[in-house]
């Protein structure tokens, strides 16, 4: 029983063995071909409309825009925040207290950008209002208030940490500690 199982595993290994020319196992090739066949079947239908060049631009552009613009932008922003809030000899790093609310607020903005940005101009808000009967100009304000709330919670948390960790009786250091949240404003 065990020997038969081992034999089967060995055979499976051989089937997966890297082919000299193809560079992967034969199962890899079959999987790729099956995948591309389905993609092709759906793809010709996706591109059947008159706007097929734009559909390709959207499909590929989404990947490029994310990989080459959005990701580098937020990574650089995060790097700047981490550099600015790094710990020094006098206090611990407070990166998380900026990073977390900023990331959460940015995420909300990213997902609901059409509604939030549409709140400012008259066109998009009017379109939304005409369709749904709901006020279209409220989303920017709501997003700003949520952002304010996130940063306020973060500030309180930082304050709590600061107060908790204050060594007792150290008056001079206490003064410095109190200035810490202000540096984050």
């Amino acid at each position: 029983m065990r020997a038969a199982w081992r034999d089967r595993v060995a055979r499976a290994r051989r089937a997966l063995r890297v082919h000299r020319w193809y560079g992967e196992g034969p199962l890899h090739l079959l999987l790729m071909l099956a995948s591309f066949a389905l993609t092709g079947y759906a793809g010709v239908r996706l591109l059947a409309g008159g706007q097929w060049p734009l559909v390709i631009v959207w499909f590929v552009g989404a990947a490029l825009l994310h990989d080459l613009v959005l990701l580098p932008l937020y990574a650089l922003a995060d790097r700047a925040v981490a550099g600015y809030t790094a710990g020094t000899g006098r206090h611990r790093a407070w990166t998380a207290y900026v990073r977390v609310p900023a990331a959460l607020s940015g995420l909300l903005l990213l997902v609901w950008f059409p509604l939030i940005a549409g709140s400012v101009g008259s066109g998009a808000a009017a379109h939304y209002e005409a369709a749904t009967g709901l006020p279209g100009g409220v989303f920017l304000g709501r997003w700003l208030l949520i952002t304010a709330g996130l940063f306020a919670v973060s500030a309180l948390w930082l304050l709590g940490r600061t107060v908790q960790q204050r060594p007792p009786g150290a008056a001079r250091r206490r003064r410095e500690t109190k200035q810490r949240p202000a540096a984050g404003d």
Partner: peptide
């Protein structure tokens, strides 16, 4: 988006799910 939502989202889902 370029075209009607229904075909774009439906066929796009099948292209995606193959990969």
């Amino acid at each position: 988006f370029p075209g009607s939502f229904y075909p774009l989202h439906f066929y796009g889902a099948w292209v995606f799910i193959g990969a």
